[in-house]
Design a protein around this nucleic acid. Structure first.
Lengths: 341, 341
DNA sequence: TTGTAAGCGTTATCAT
DNA sequence: ATGATAACGCTTACAA
């Protein structure tokens, strides 16, 4: 591990007895290079064990072939799948992904965006932790590279592409489904209003009731964080209330685990004692007993799309645009039986 | 998005009427700078809206403050947690993590290691997809930065630090536990022998039987990939055999989902018709009905440790070393009842 | 087709 | 304490 000085293009040039620029041309497949030159240079490269220094070429070219990715928590399967989809697509286009976590903190959102700017990433894929934060907008405004937001609406940021999912449609089907089963005391446990998915779900949740001439059960709304702990607490709270829900909607996979923990503690059986719908498909929803009805979307595809929208602007210099990923309600036994009180 | 030329240190120097080198000194907290100089430079920095170019400074300094992370699939909760732990720790030390996926391919292992080398990352954290591949060893040998392997043993790579988990202990307790419950027809569904966890588990699985004067059930071993599909296929296969197992051990969270799918298809109830142990805690193991006995370890901690071992060498230039993360058997209802045939 | 040389934005060495 | 200036390793006019 003795940091021996790496061979540079100059070493190659000397070894081959040619000019530095010729080496560069060979390496970059410049049209005007004789076969003989190519041979000599390639030979020398092998001889001296040359390896390109992407740092130097990035500096000179003004492009790093690197994309920054920011999410609150990569260990959340939702973000992990998005990251996977994005990385795959970017890799095809020879871009490398730099991963950062904001740990749900708006302050870290800012820090990370600044860091990525300083590192001169060619573009950003962001799912910020707080859409409303002024500082984040400032950091974003300083950026002069394309940005793609994932399931976020940042007011004032007009030149970003956006990949959203159609939460409205999914939530609408879920509520309609529950109402049709006879439920009206439906609880919604969701994340903070600073985030688009939570806002959308809440909006459509209420709307769905009104459209059926029903009053939305405001007392059954629980807006907290997206964590398991928050889900567990909210559920215990709901169950202890005067008029507990006969059905619940959990707005995310972490919330779901919290909800299930709480139900287990209260010895309630999903599907029999209480109906349950969750958002985002994970192994648990499919393999739970009974299987859990879920508002699903293709997270890997969202990542893929985000990368695609970015590449459009990077390579094809297209305009920013919005893409919407569909959601669909997968009905399972957790909502099969109706229960009226 | 008009790529306006960014302000450089030269702009700052001109604006402040000082030398370029003075700006650099201010920015790097050099001891020999007058307060007055500091004021002027900071003022100019604000005026011209200067932002450091980490690319240029990396090139000059010979260090990128960047660590490469390679795993087969970041959407696997195990790797996602490891990545999270590592990123957190590295971020504290002002390092950024570059994430790459090998998609389970040894060839991509090689490509990614080469790419990270070309990008001049200061160190690597790797969980390669094939420990035995010669090409990977070649790529690793060319590296002149510290490496930490996660749960991998690469023969011939002597100067790497390694974080492993104590699969031996975990598997040993699991088998002993099952035998004590009266099981002897225990199946093991595991990943490929190219990977340490699979090798270790297999080795200890057999050993545990022999130590009890029992013959290991070779016909119940299923060595495939770590995927859900592989787990499902292996399970269906086992259940269709002459002498199906009364207990099964799934060697990973993806395998587990496959196993559960297969059991469901065959209408077998976990804990009653068949005992089940899995490896690595996920929400599903805890919240399944019945809850699933699991060989657990702290994945986030593994990532944290890996970062730690890397930083030791980077900052403190310590020697490479090995760290072992404990595993523990969490007994749940999936293995409560014995069944003899 | 090939070579020469300027420049990307820093840091670090050397004077002053 | 501050200022010139030479690297760092590459790409790209421009000349030959």
């Amino acid at each position: 591990m003795a940091r021996r000085r790496d061979a540079t293009m100059e070493d190659v040039a000397n070894h081959a007895g040619v000019a530095l620029s010729s080496v560069s041309r060979v390496l970059n497949d410049h049209p005007d290079v004789s076969d003989r030159m190519k041979q000599r240079v390639m030979g020398a490269i092998a001889d001296v064990g040359y390896e390109p220094n992407l740092l130097a070429s990035s500096l000179r070219r003004g492009s790093t072939k690197t994309i920054g990715f920011l999410a609150s928590d990569i260990s959340n399967p939702l973000f992990a799948e998005i990251a996977l989809g994005a990385e795959r697509r970017l890799d095809e286009a020879e871009y490398t992904m730099v991963l950062t976590n904001s740990e749900g903190s708006g302050e870290r959102d800012e820090e990370m965006i600044r860091l990525l700017r300083w590192r001169r990433t060619d573009g950003l894929i962001l799912s910020v932790s707080d859409e409303r934060r002024a500082g984040t907008l400032v950091e974003l405004a300083r950026l002069d590279v394309p940005v793609v937001l994932i399931d976020r609406d940042v007011k004032g940021l007009d030149d970003a592409s956006v990949v959203t999912s159609d939460h409205a449609r999914g939530m609408r089907s879920a509520v309609d489904h529950l109402i049709e089963l006879g439920h009206t005391d439906i609880a919604l446990i969701s994340g903070p209003r600073q985030l688009r998915p939570a806002r959308e779900r809440l909006r459509v949740f209420r709307r769905a009731f009104r459209d059926q001439q029903l009053e939305p059960p405001e007392h059954l709304l629980r807006i907290g964080s997206f964590s398991a702990q928050s889900g567990e607490q909210a559920t215990l709270d709901l169950l202890a209330s005067d008029r507990p829900p006969t059905a619940m909607i959990a707005g995310g996979n972490l919330l779901l685990t919290g909800v299930l923990r709480a139900l287990r503690r209260r010895k309630l059986t999903v599907g029999r004692d209480i109906a349950l719908v969750s958002c985002d498909e994970v192994p648990l929803t499919e393999l739970h007993s009974p299987p859990i009805t879920v508002i699903a979307r293709d997270a890997v595809h969202m990542g893929d799309l985000a990368a695609e929208l970015l590449l459009e602007r990077l390579v094809g210099d297209a305009e920013p645009r919005r893409a919407v990923v569909p959601t669909s309600l997968i009905v399972r036994d957790s909502t099969k039986k109706a229960r009226r009180r």
